[in-house]
Design a protein around this nucleic acid. Structure first.
Length: 445
RNA sequence: GGGCCCUUCGUCUAUCGGUUAGGACGCCUGGUUUUCAACCAGGAAAGAGGGGUUCGACUCCCCUAGGGCCUGCCA
């Protein structure tokens, strides 16, 4: 049977690098195994969820190149969750509680202060029908908790190995809020059962959840899927991801000019035993994916490394693959141009700077006017090709006696206004005789 | 406070009791018949600290220090 995974973002914000990593892990495993990924929009919180955010998630996934096989909204399935809740209530596994948030907060603080575990004391379990009637008469509305068994729940985690969660040391999870809204837990399990999810792959912030969710799977009579919990991201300094980096959205990265495959390559490789290198396709990343390669220590998300990966990826791109994108930037100056400058790009939009340098106008950097003047005097006429540059530099060398860096650097500076850049032999024909002459003479061109 | 996880070159990591402790990025050197970048090749570079167990420990156990996650009527 083919595997089925799911990515379940909440449309209460744009997706950021952490979300993308979660999504990617699911996709990599699914693609490698020829399985499917369901996009499940966890919009049970009607107040905070918006269609705009939902659309942005869809757009961002599409931009990244992560295709889903099915899409579902939890907000369309409340009746299904109601039935599941009724079933659990009938079984006595879900019980009404009447504490206010303030009261619970106080209980937690007292427990903490007296060095006791801050878990729910199950006071509501002792309520009689009369007690409940009285509370309801006072205007209190119940929220509903799932009664944990208190047993240990074990599973073999795809990345962490054997796991054991003692549900006796946990609070009974609230499944339904006082206002009737479903929290994340129940709909998630119900959907995983209904959509026949075989593997749940998510961050290690969910390992405890998995213990309680296994109990709910069992209570509902569903098959318990396999679980895999990978370590979370930390910043380049090893500390928790800063708010700025952690909330870095796909949209922002796209706007800055990062390639989708850069983001995917980086997020797929950090924290694994593979070298952090650019890959050009999701399929290739998937073929290299293995849970065994994922380390147990948090993965470092370093924006500098992301740049490096982006540069390496750009350097591989053939002209045909980027022609359309170049045109959009008004930077399609032909294959020779692309091949000349691509090795000097970090971000794709950097290409515009090289268009400017080739076509001008730029202000040349002339530090030795006499030398530049002499060079201008031996500037070749007519059509330029790959042989023009060596011919020209040899002529300058003969005329001035300059060689090595003293020969090439002033020419580069005068002709490009920069002290670094692509191979001059490739760039020179693109600049051409007219602009070259003016620049050597110190004129903007 | 409690629970879970983690700590190897500058960085990300491999090693699952016996290795010249391997790779990648960065760095250094050289090559690309003369510049920088890019590219290629070579090189330097590591086991948090302290106790055990063992013929032998990076590897197993304990303590200390440091870090991540959970402990929500968030997901």
């Amino acid at each position: 049977m083919s595997i089925r995974l799911r990515f379940a973002p909440s449309p209460t914000g744009r997706i950021h690098v952490g979300n993308v990593r979660t999504a990617l892990m699911n996709w990599l495993f699914a693609v490698r195994e020829g399985g499917q990924v369901l996009l499940r929009i966890d919009d049970t919180d009607i107040a905070r969820s918006t269609k705009e955010f939902e659309q942005s998630i869809v757009d961002d996934l599409a931009w990244l190149g992560l295709p889903w096989s099915e899409r579902a909204n939890q907000s369309h399935r409340f009746d299904v969750y109601d039935r599941a809740a009724d079933k659990l209530k009938a079984a006595g596994l879900v019980y009404p509680c009447y504490e206010t948030e303030d009261e619970l907060d106080r209980k937690r603080k007292i427990a903490q202060a007296t060095n006791k575990p801050p878990i729910y004391d199950r006071a509501a379990l002792k309520l009689t029908d009369a007690d409940r009637a009285k509370l309801e008469a006072e205007g209190r509305r119940a929220h509903w908790r799932f009664k944990l068994s208190g047993a240990r729940k074990d599973w073999v985690d795809l990345v962490r190995g054997p796991q054991s969660i003692d549900t006796g040391s946990l609070s009974d999870p609230v499944l339904i809020r006082e206002d009737g809204a479903f929290l994340y837990t129940l709909p998630s399990v119900v959907d995983d059962i209904d959509f026949k999810i075989t593997h749940i792959v998510r961050g290690e912030d969910h390992v405890t959840n998995s213990g309680v969710q296994i109990e709910i799977f069992e209570a509902l009579g569903g098959d318990v899927p396999a679980f895999g919990h990978f370590p979370l991201l930390v910043g380049a300094d090893g500390n928790a991801l800063s708010k700025r980096i952690g909330s870095l959205g796909v949209g922002e990265l796209a706007a800055e000019g990062y390639e989708p495959m850069t983001i995917l390559s980086h997020l797929a490789k950090i924290g694994t035993s593979d070298p952090v290198e650019a890959r050009t396709s999701l399929e290739q990343l998937a073929s290299e994916f293995a849970f065994e390669k994922i380390g147990r220590a948090p993965a470092r998300f370093d924006p500098e490394e992301l740049k490096r990966v982006n540069a390496a990826l750009l350097h591989q791109y053939e002209y045909s693959a980027v022609k359309d994108r170049l045109a959009k930037l008004d930077a399609d100056k032909g294959e020779a141009f692309w091949n000349a400058v691509r090795a000097n790009l970090v971000l794709f939009p950097d290409v515009k700077a090289w268009v400017q340098i080739v076509e001008g106008p730029i202000a040349p950097v002339v530090t030795d006017a006499a030398f530049a003047q002499a060079a201008a005097e031996v500037l070749p006429s007519g059509a330029y090709d790959a042989t023009t540059w060596p011919a020209f530099t040899n002529a300058v060398k003969e005329k001035t006696g300059a060689k090595g860096k003293a020969l090439f650097m002033p020419l580069r500076q005068a002709l490009t206004g920069m002290d670094h850049g692509p191979e001059m032999a490739a760039l020179f024909p693109l600049i051409g005789e007219e602009r070259a002459r003016k620049r050597l003479l110190g004129q903007s061109a």
